[in-house]
Design a protein around this nucleic acid. Sequence first.
DNA 1: TTTATCCGCTAAATCCTTTTAGCAAATAAG
DNA 2: CTTATTTGCTAAAAGGATTTAGCGGATAAA
Lengths: 344, 344
Amino acid sequence: MKKKLLISDIAKQLNVSITTVSFILNGKAKEKRISDDLTERVQKLVEEVGYRPNQLAQSLRTGKTRTIGLMVEDISNPFFANIARLIEERAYQEGYKIVYCSTEDDSDRTKELISMFRDMHVDGYIITPPQGVEEDVEKLIKDGFPVVLVDRQVAGIHTHCVIVDNLSGAYNATAHLMEQGYQNIAFVTTDSRQSQMLQRLEGYRKALAEKQLEPAVLEVPYRYDAKQMLRKIVSFFEETESIDAVLFATNYMAVRGLEAISQFNPQGLPANLGVASYDDHDVFKLLKPTITAVAQPTEAIANHVINLMLHLLNPKNKTSEADTIVLPTQLIIRNSTPRKEVVA
Amino acid sequence: MKKKLLISDIAKQLNVSITTVSFILNGKAKEKRISDDLTERVQKLVEEVGYRPNQLAQSLRTGKTRTIGLMVEDISNPFFANIARLIEERAYQEGYKIVYCSTEDDSDRTKELISMFRDMHVDGYIITPPQGVEEDVEKLIKDGFPVVLVDRQVAGIHTHCVIVDNLSGAYNATAHLMEQGYQNIAFVTTDSRQSQMLQRLEGYRKALAEKQLEPAVLEVPYRYDAKQMLRKIVSFFEETESIDAVLFATNYMAVRGLEAISQFNPQGLPANLGVASYDDHDVFKLLKPTITAVAQPTEAIANHVINLMLHLLNPKNKTSEADTIVLPTQLIIRNSTPRKEVVA
DNA sequence: TTTATCCGCTAAATCCTTTTAGCAAATAAG
DNA sequence: CTTATTTGCTAAAAGGATTTAGCGGATAAA
């Protein structure tokens, strides 16, 4: 295990000062009027011996770690996993590392994680905020850290934010089901008061109201595990028999819900049932009845988020106004009829 | 933005030396014979003012970051996302952070990531290694870093390793299909030479050989995207019409493959086709024909990995022999008949 | 009485950079 | 011929902790 090279080793080799080497390595050769000749010799040696500055020492001195903290609700949820993956990709290209973790939508846990990230000296924060962390996040902002919220907004936090048009998404999905002739459309959602969930509910209600149809909403407690959720959905369907179509508020609820439904029909899902889901899923196209889905623009979300963050991290940019980016969803219609895709 | 507290602030407040405070905070009060009285006063003040040591300074001095680098093939793959999630959970409990990233099974990328992790001074490495990184990983080991491999082995790397019994898993799935009466069982896999894939292939071949059945293997190039993969599978089925059952080597190939199959049957998947998949998937139970799956013990994998890593990170433990842990899979049989689960 | 040991704590070195302030020699300006 | 300015580089401080080596006085052992 050969011992790590130090900047002093480089300096000694070339009979120059540490300062000079540091300037050159940090691209300040010109600014500090180091001769081109010396600049080259230093760069050549550094290259040859493979010297790499100690990042801890660098960070200690500069206060920057070139690390971004990413807190999603659940990294094992494909929606977040995909976004994380795309953000990570871009971040690495720009010389940033990503540290991520799952909040589980728990405010205490989230507070702890924020504090952990502070301890780690991350340069910026990307967060899908649960309720109840307003103060902690506002504190981050007040302390001058770049903060970008994703997927949901929280009243009381005034910062940059990337979300999708949940209301229209749910509205369009519901409208589509109505166009197909369904009259008793249920909405299965969670009981959490996350903004994106409330907006989806509103979109559903709005579409029904326009046709004077009655809403039928099931709120499954957020903390329910797969089994409990399944049971809850089963009994909901038992109680409200007239239902002929369902809109699920998330893809994992759709999966669980379809499982519940199939318990009625050992032969499989009833072909006459109308099913739509907020958030698409790889396997929806395999199911019968095929499932219409509100696809979220994960790539666009990730791109906007990381662009915003990189912009904020660049000291050259003045701190711009907090702006909210709302991205459109796409309704992916999967009927027996030829499939079309329509921008919502 | 109140300025950060320093250890010197604490020391000054109590008229003691920085050293003393440091000893107390690091649990060396007894060892260094600091009086109980002073120890308490220091702890009380630290608590009151909320002092937290600067981790960068700590790490610079100690050389430890309490960070573990986790490199999986693809964090957006549910199998890895789940493992990552579980590992993260335990790591946080033990005061370790996890930094993770996706190798995409690309050796150059992986080498870069290893080098990045070194620069970050992570304390340990958890890796799903692609081919071609033997030297780099061996170097890590030689330099004294704890390294644990997951999901696959690579010849030439001699270190701790947690894998599953791929051969038996594939063997059991194939045997099950044969018991159901299927005679022409295809195996759809990737062309990558990853150890776990080769073992699955071997399990499949072994089962067929015992009954003198002919194998029919399709290797889809690893770099193919969803569309290309689909096309490849479609043409395979067209060419080999006699096939009456398929074993897919991964769950994402299964999803793609089922899509391909359903292109023949606009009504849905043919009910008489036998389908099994290595790696289970949330939605398999919704499909017709239901899909028998080789479930991997994600929780056990994650637990073994993190336990091993924590053990290695503990300086009290002598460096133990490199050992390979092989975990059993579970064959989840989903037939029209009542579902049973059998340990493989 | 002398020597050794223990007690309770601390000064200073160390980890490895970046950055501020400035020096000595050479050139330009007055 | 002074006095500024520029040039090319550097010494030393700073960043915030951990850790080694040790100090002066009190007690115990010989």
